[in-house]
């Protein structure tokens, strides 16, 4: 096993550990912090896969902004004591985990891996490449997504104003 494989599997083990902690920790703030750790490790995976731009954006958007808002809500509502687990919930989660695991493993074993998985050019994963794709080929979906976000912001402000 070369160094890259060792790093990959140790990171993967960490990621699975952190993700399990998100689900199984009783304290909501602890779960949120475990989720931050998991998102951070995913960002490291993006960097290893030669996409540092996506990795950095992952930290910036998910770990740095969205999770802070999660924590905000948890703290304001003081949701520290989680409610007891329900059995129906657990069995539902178990069944869906098994189904998802089955589908994923079926997909992984069915498809042939690409002959040369790292066909990385100089520009691969660079901001230039990303911008060229985003603003030429996908400019319409990009703009629609930004309008969608704007609608969501305006909607949130309207709802907040009506309450007061």
């Amino acid at each position: 096993m070369d160094v890259a494989t060792v790093i990959f599997f140790s990171l993967a083990a960490l990621l699975i550990g952190a993700s399990l902690l998100v689900v199984f920790l009783r304290n909501v703030v602890h779960s949120a912090m475990a989720l931050v750790a998991a998102l951070f490790i995913i960002a490291v995976f993006f960097v290893i896969l030669q996409a540092p731009m996506v990795g950095v954006l992952q930290v910036l958007v998910y770990a740095g902004a969205i999770m802070v808002l999660f924590l905000f809500v948890i703290m304001f509502l003081n949701l520290t004591a989680s409610e007891p687990r329900r059995r129906a919930w657990l069995s539902f989660a178990g069944v869906s985990t098994l189904l998802l695991g089955g589908v994923l493993s079926a997909m992984l074993t069915q498809t042939e891996p690409a002959a040369d998985p790292v066909a990385a050019t100089e520009l691969f994963g660079s901001p230039e490449m990303l911008a060229r794709n985003l603003f030429n080929d996908f400019v319409l979906p990009f703009e629609i997504a930004s309008v969608l976000l704007l609608v969501a912001i305006v909607g949130a402000v309207v709802l907040a104003k009506r309450g007061s």
Binding site: V29, M33, V36, P52, M53, V56, L57, V59, L60, A63, G64, A65, V68, L71, F72, M75, S126, P127
Partner: peptide, 23 residues
């Protein structure tokens, strides 16, 4: 090659020290 974004990504993690310490 994404240096400035890295700076902002790491700076955005600085919030946790305060929020978690406070809580």
């Amino acid at each position: 090659n994404v240096g400035i974004l890295y700076v902002f990504a790491m700076a955005s993690l600085g919030v946790y020290g305060i929020v978690i310490g406070a809580w």
